[in-house]
């Protein structure tokens, strides 16, 4: 399904988001609405004639600029930090547009938040988002999925309300709960199940393991991403831990052999950090020698007696020094 994301047309007007990194939520001859799934977007628009178009980007980076040719422009309006509206004059033919913050290719250290598993706590997710927004210099949130409990329209509507409290975008893969009712709903609203992008010299691969496994076709894409990011900091996220460190509970991949095979790939790809959700607690361990965290503290039924409760991680990669400087835990309810 990921292959169809980011492509749409209206009569003879066409758009394609490179690598499907944004969902086309709506399109007319004059207006295109996108949900961004990455900090930087590359768009290819084709129009038979000149056309004035409004590009409305939800979940955009707060400092996003639109670049078309050599010209760069700020949003025409920005109702919220993550809601960017650009008015663009397109020439006839194909136009290449980039939408990203100006520093997205500058290799320097930055911080992002990682979280997962909001599910039934969506009505309190505003508290988590407020806590994240209160952290200085966080560029975006990466989510390992299980944003919703059962994937109803009402849940997604509530999520869209709550996520407006975030001052930074929320990029997420899916968990098993997004697949409960209608997996296509996620695609329609947000786009990809599995995202891969590069930001400030750091590679991110957040992949769909919603059925406790990786689709073989996704594994082929992942192999390419791993190869591309071999010499960089590469952060791998997915919903199910490959191995549950509590082996008896086994809340990991449904096949330990598959998990082992994938860990070999990650190790060969020199992945620097693996981030998981699904287990509603916080675990720090290693798998195949790669630092690993399970952070399922979005508010879903918590694991008891762990002294953790709602939380998120703040990850500080440094592409210059080629290392993860720190990973800190922030508890929401302290």
């Amino acid at each position: 399904m990921d292959g169809d994301v980011g492509k749409a047309s209206f009569e003879t007007f066409e758009i394609e988001v490179v690598d499907g990194l944004a969902a086309v939520q709506n399109m007319t001859g004059e207006r295109i609405t996108l949900w961004a799934q990455a900090p930087s977007l590359q768009l290819s628009l084709a129009s038979e004639g000149p056309r004035d178009v409004t590009l409305e980007i939800f979940n955009c980076m707060p400092a996003a600029q639109l670049q078309i040719g050599t010209e760069s422009q700020s949003p025409t309006s920005q109702p919220r930090p993550t809601h960017c509206i650009f008015d663009v004059a397109l020439a006839a033919g194909e136009s290449q547009i980039a939408i990203a913050p100006p520093d997205w290719e500058i290799e320097e250290d930055f911080r992002f938040a990682d979280m997962g598993d909001i599910q039934t706590a969506m009505d309190r997710a505003d508290e988590v988002f407020a806590a994240i927004s209160s952290e200085p210099d966080i560029r975006f949130v990466m989510s390992t999925g299980d944003v919703v409990e059962s994937g109803t329209f009402e849940e997604y509507e509530l999520f869209l309300e709550q996520v407006e409290l975030l001052d930074i975008p929320f990029f997420s893969t899916v968990g098993n709960h997004e697949l409960s009712i209608d997996a296509a709903r996620w695609h329609d609203l947000f786009g990809l199940f599995s995202t891969h992008f590069r930001f400030k010299g750091v590679d991110f691969s957040y992949v769909d393991s919603g059925n406790a496994s990786l689709d073989p076709s996704l594994q082929r894409r992942l192999a390419q991403w791993l190869e591309d990011g071999k010499d960089r900091i590469h952060i791998f996220g997915t919903h199910y831990p490959l191995f549950d460190p509590v082996g008896v509970r086994n809340a990991g991949f449904r096949s330990r052999s598959e998990a082992s095979k994938l860990l070999v790939q990650l190790a060969r790809g020199q992945v620097d950090l693996t981030l998981y959700g699904h287990v509603h607690s916080l675990y720090e361990f290693e798998n195949a020698g790669i630092p690993a965290f399970i952070s399922g503290g979005g508010g879903a039924l918590p694991e008891r007696f762990d002294g953790i409760d709602r939380h998120f991680l703040i990850v500080h990669p440094d592409p210059v020094e080629n290392r993860i400087r720190s990973i800190e835990t922030r508890r929401v309810d302290d």
Partner: peptide, 18 residues
Amino acid sequence: RDGFAAGLSPSPGNGSGF
């Protein structure tokens, strides 16, 4: 869930992994 047969995913979605 080791070995060849490992674990069944009863549906594409929820319930997987146990």
